[in-house]
Every structure is written in structure tokens, then in C-alpha cells.
Simulated scan of single mutants.
Amino acid sequence: MHSLLNLFIEQIRETTWVQWLAVVLGVAEVLLARVNNIWLYPAGILGTALSILLLMEAQLYAESLLNVYYIVMSVYGWIYWIKKRDQPSVKVTWSTKTEWIISLSISLGGWAVLYFLLRYFTPSNVPLWDAFVSSTAWAGMWLLARRKIENWIFLNISNLFAVPLLFYKKLPMFAALTIFLFIVACFGYFDWKRKAVKKDMRFET
């Protein structure tokens, strides 16, 4: 335990200002999203762009690609917010059997495809791990876009495996941010579950 603490302190000392800024912007994005503030998008886009540079340097290519998708979706979300902000949001629901099949296909199929690409076309030394973290996150984001409760499960599986990977790649602040996101996702799951139960109770009465 003492050696792990020393390793963490050593990695913190070696953390660059770019990584600190990316993490601060990531935290800001989450907090702004919680209060439904449109500034979450510019904070998220800038933080994610910095993250891509750092992840590429660490040879985490699948996570870099994942973050490119985050930027695309953030730009889309920003535009959609401006145009549709006064319209009601999509209701939170449980995934159907078909949606579960699609989600698992994205996770497992994406894992296999990304592993193949990373293994044979990049110098990555963690292709299996990097591919799994990204493929489960892809599935979680697909469910999130559809407002399905299970998105938090897939995202937290990704977060759980991402933490040791980021420490291994000497990105301690990103690992700390991922732990923070893991906790937020736990609260998100129970919050969405409560909303779905309330909706079901209204239909029953």
C-alpha cells in the first residue's frame, strides 16, 4: 500500500499543466451538466481535445478515437441544445431485449475489431485493455443517447477498467477524474432508476 501511495505521489509530481487543465475542464463539464448549463459543451470540447493529445502520447489509441467521438457528439449536443432547448426531453426507460443485444454486440464486436486494429496497426502495448475500455464506453454512450438506464452500467464497466490502465500509462489525474466519473455514474444510475420507477407507478395508477 505504501509503495502504491509513493507511486501515485511520484506520478502527480510528473503531471504536466496540460493534464491538469484537461482534468479541470472535465470536472467543470460534469458539474455544469448537473445544473443543466450550456457552458458544459465548450468546457467539454476543449478538455477532450487536450485529452486526445495526451492519450495519443501515451499510445492509448482506442481511447483517443473514443474522445474524437465525444467531441463530435458535444458539437452536435451544443447545436441541438440551442435549437431544441424548449422541447421536452426523451423519457428515461429500461433497455429492451433488442437494445441489450445491440449493446453487447457493440461491446464485444467493438472489442474484437479495436483489438485487431491496435494489435496489428499501432505500436500499442495494451491493445486488449485499451480496446475493451473503449468498446464498453461506446455501448454506454449509445444507450445514453437513447436515455436507457443501463448506459450507466456499461460506462462504469469502462471506467472500472480505465483507472488502472491510466495509472499504468502514468496519467494519474486522468485516473482520478475517471474515479470521479465512476462515482457520478453510480449516482446517475440510481437517479435514473428512481425516475423510471416513478413513471411506471404513474402508469399503474
Rank of each mutant, 00 (worst) to 15 (best):
N6R: 12
I9K: 12
E10I: 08
T15Y: 04
W17K: 08
W20F: 11
A22F: 03
A28M: 09
L32A: 05
A33W: 04
A33C: 09
I38E: 08
A43H: 02
G44A: 08
I45F: 03
L46S: 03
L46G: 00
L54M: 08
E57V: 12
A58R: 00
Q59R: 11
E63D: 14
E63I: 06
S64W: 01
Y69L: 15
M73R: 05
K83V: 11
R85N: 13
R85C: 09
S89F: 12
W94Q: 09
T98L: 15
I101E: 10
S103M: 04
S105H: 10
W111K: 03
Y115H: 12
L117S: 05
F121M: 08
F121Q: 10
S124C: 06
P127N: 01
F132H: 04
S134A: 09
A137N: 05
A145V: 12
W152I: 01
I157A: 06
S158H: 05
N159F: 07
L160C: 14
F161G: 09
F167Y: 10
L171F: 06
L171R: 04
A175R: 01
I179R: 09
G188S: 01
G188W: 00
Y189M: 10
Y189C: 07
F190E: 09
R194T: 10
K195H: 12
K195V: 08
R202V: 13
T205H: 15
